[in-house]
């Protein structure tokens, strides 16, 4: 197991967990499943494009955050 940080909260996950797995793990309701499908994911200050989520292998101490789009002008 490794510890990553999701929105600053520690989260223990298996060592071979990818970014999509993490988001599936923290999305506990259908609503959050849908919400997480439509945000930008940031790992250690770098944005990971959605198509790369299944290919990003999480590392111990990764800081993972989600950003919603801001649309106002």
């Amino acid at each position: 197991m490794i510890t990553v940080y999701f929105n600053s909260q520690p989260l223990s996950v298996p060592a071979d967990t990818n970014l999509r797995d993490i988001l599936a793990l923290v999305a506990t309701t259908q609503q959050s499943h849908e919400a997480f499908a439509n945000v930008a994911a940031v790992v250690n200050e770098c944005i990971v494009p959605k198509s790369q989520w299944p290919h990003y292998q999480c590392q111990a101490s990764d800081n993972i955050e989600l950003f919603a789009a801001v649309a106002g002008g």
């Binding site: 439509n38 945000v39 930008a40 789009a69 801001v70």
Partner: peptide
């Protein structure tokens, strides 16, 4: 579009 898709959850001023 690489950042946010067309269905993105948004915040707006209104």
């Amino acid at each position: 579009r690489c950042l946010f898709n067309e269905h993105a959850i948004t915040q707006d001023c209104q």
